[in-house]
């Protein structure tokens, strides 16, 4: 498989503050990546750097065969980076439908297909962004990213603050997108168990550097390593939510 995304010795941060310290990793096309780590290790900064919202002091970022280290944010988004920001950040003064159409670019994903994926959004199409529940906002943020017809989804703490049932459904959607659409994701999360079950590869960050890189499944099974890296997973985890879709399952249940 060919390389889709690579950080090469990237040092980046805000103003003079360095958050990512000579960070390197790469991602193959079609593979999902979990980015794990404790609070404040640079997980969100990594995505912000990928989207061009931080100051890159040295190193380079390659995306889809192109050096994008100095590319403006909006061109990165148009080149196929589908960003789902932390805290959703849907546009509050736009309706649900406008939130989707305002960023639309031609491609396989359109309004109809996003509504098929999230029927709840169609029901609330005329509501404004600030009139939605947390789960609906997250669906909208993912739908908005899909409307840009991305080659890779970037999910920044997508499960934060959501009810467990919504978390399961969203995780299922992310998995389905990868399996049936070939749309892989980069998932930044605090909680490793679910995230590892959604992804192929994982990297663990500490103080702005990659301290572990490997297969998600291997990491999920190695509770000692997981505990050492993240301070979790010492006890055997309670049975984790099954992420396997029932046969023929393509959409969320109505009214999710």
């Amino acid at each position: 498989m060919s390389e889709l995304l690579a950080f090469d010795q990237v040092t980046a941060g805000y103003g003079d503050a360095v958050v990512l310290d000579r960070m390197s990793f790469s991602l193959e096309a079609g593979k999902s990546l979990a980015i794990l780590g404790r609070n404040g290790v640079g997980k969100t900064t990594l995505l912000e750097t990928l989207m061009g919202h931080t100051r890159v002091m040295s190193g380079s970022i390659r995306w889809n065969g192109q050096d994008i280290t100095r590319m403006p944010s909006h061109r990165r988004a148009r080149s196929g980076l589908g960003w789902v920001p932390q805290e959703r950040e849907v546009f509050p003064s736009l309706t649900v439908e406008e939130n989707l159409t305002v960023v639309a670019t031609p491609g396989p994903w359109n309004l109809k297909r996003v509504y098929e994926l999230f029927p709840r959004l169609q029901e609330r199409r005329s509501n404004y962004g600030n009139q939605l529940s947390g789960g609906e906002q997250q669906m909208l943020a993912i739908g908005r990213a899909l409307m840009t017809n991305p080659k890779l989804l970037l999910l920044d703490e997508p499960m934060e603050g959501l009810a467990p049932i919504i978390v399961e459904e969203l995780a299922l959607v992310v998995k389905l997108l990868c399996e049936s659409e070939g749309l892989a994701s980069v998932v930044v999360e605090q909680h490793p168990v679910l995230t590892l079950s959604m992804t192929h590869h994982a990297i663990v960050l500490e103080r702005g550097q990659v301290v572990h890189a490997g297969h998600s499944q291997a990491l999920a099974e190695d509770t000692h390593l997981l505990h050492g890296l993240l301070g979790v997973g010492q006890r055997p985890q309670p049975s984790r939510p099954s992420m396997d879709a029932p046969a023929g399952y393509t959409l969320l249940p109505q009214g999710a």
Binding site: M51, H53, H74, A77, F91, S93, V102, V103, R144
Partner: peptide, 19 residues
């Protein structure tokens, strides 16, 4: 809608492809 989106949140507007 683009203007309103950019007024709401410039950073996210850029990050979702609005010039």
């Amino acid at each position: 809608a683009m203007v309103r989106a950019a007024v709401d949140n410039q950073r996210v507007a850029r990050g979702t492809g609005i010039h």
